[in-house]
Design a protein around this nucleic acid. Sequence first.
DNA 1: CTGTTATTTATGTCTATATATATGGCTATT
DNA 2: AATAGCCATATATATAGACATAAATAACAG
Lengths: 234, 234
Amino acid sequence: MARSHATMSYRDIKQVVLERIQTGIWLPDSLLPSEMELATEFSSTRTTVNRALRELAEEGYLERKRRAGTRVLNSPIRKANFSIPLIHDEIAATGATYRYSLVERSLQTAPSWLSARLSLKKDQDVLYVRCMHYANNAAFQFEVRWIVPEVVPEVIDESFEQSGPNDWLVRKIPFTNLELSFMATKADSEIADFLDAPVGDPIFTAERITWLRGAAVTYAKLYFAPGYRMTTHL
Amino acid sequence: MARSHATMSYRDIKQVVLERIQTGIWLPDSLLPSEMELATEFSSTRTTVNRALRELAEEGYLERKRRAGTRVLNSPIRKANFSIPLIHDEIAATGATYRYSLVERSLQTAPSWLSARLSLKKDQDVLYVRCMHYANNAAFQFEVRWIVPEVVPEVIDESFEQSGPNDWLVRKIPFTNLELSFMATKADSEIADFLDAPVGDPIFTAERITWLRGAAVTYAKLYFAPGYRMTTHL
DNA sequence: CTGTTATTTATGTCTATATATATGGCTATT
DNA sequence: AATAGCCATATATATAGACATAAATAACAG
């Protein structure tokens, strides 16, 4: 809360502005007073008001345009923030014990669909890794991944027997670009087997492609155990 | 691009710092020079450097602590931003034509699971709405929704025959809080029927609970047509 | 040696001011 | 009536300096 009558911080201003939006004092599509006017009202400075409004705009509440002013957005195109934690962090956060297990690791020629998806050269070698992640010894996630050794040559020396490729990649590659998709897939016999689920069960699935300066590094498909929910609050 | 040799903007500084992280000049866990030192190096001011570093920290690249300094994060816990558009915007963005169709609208006593989930009073009345969203006349999403009239009394006068409850709610309620979950479910005969999919097909499903100043406004379950993918880039 | 206190330091934030830039609206021109 | 050019204005960003605050370190007391 703001100090009795002293100057308001940018947080206080954010709070007040947000309340005025949420209580309908400032209706959607309406124009806010200019930064100068608000600075006067809050006996603050334009710089401070600017920061408050800028952050509210980043959070999706306001739209700001030079000369045109700041207006309240009507359709809250608010951004859901899903943080993408390392899987052992995600599991540890629930209090469960994390366990990793390698299923397969082999060098193979990239299948054509992968070459197309990652824009690889024809018949390029890729490292194929399959592994399991467990929470309290229950199946949590089945990971199927391809890694392009041409982009990360060091991967050839990695056995991935003790820890998963994601851990290694995150430490090794400061990825520059990422495409992330979520979908629902049907458990085939292999996935069902690994995830201890009936064949045909709906499986929450993530697909992840990582690029390093324009070149595809890795493609991963992550199959979550039945019952998995990805949740966010905002 | 930076002006030849003049002062660097906070964007330029962000860019340079990010490059130094991504090229390994500043390794994970290592400490960056202080804001003062960087300000000197970039012939800028501490305020400007501060903004650059602050934003990089928000984006998940850096960790900053008073007195302790700024260090490079080893696991970039980057945030995936999924914007939550209105469904007709989402469909229009693909170039398809949006069509809406009401399936059912009825006032009923809240089922006990819903009461528990939304912390409703016992035997409270809720408006039950089921509707379909089509893209180019193909099933896109089947929506099942409960709305609490006690929180939004005006909903009683809404027929939802021409447009969906989401549109109406977004315009009417400046929601204060939102819980959003994604999961994979199995199409039962009803869902399969509406989405024109085989029974048992995996269905990408969203669950959404909206609160207005502590009171639950609406609970929605959104079943997407087979093949739906939620994608983001970062 | 241990626990407490004081000091130092890097970040956090605010103030005051100045310049830059986009753009809505006005005006003059075609 | 449409268009091009100009101007006023609100936001965008930069600067310089100050005080606030958290936390690592050093100094100190028991």
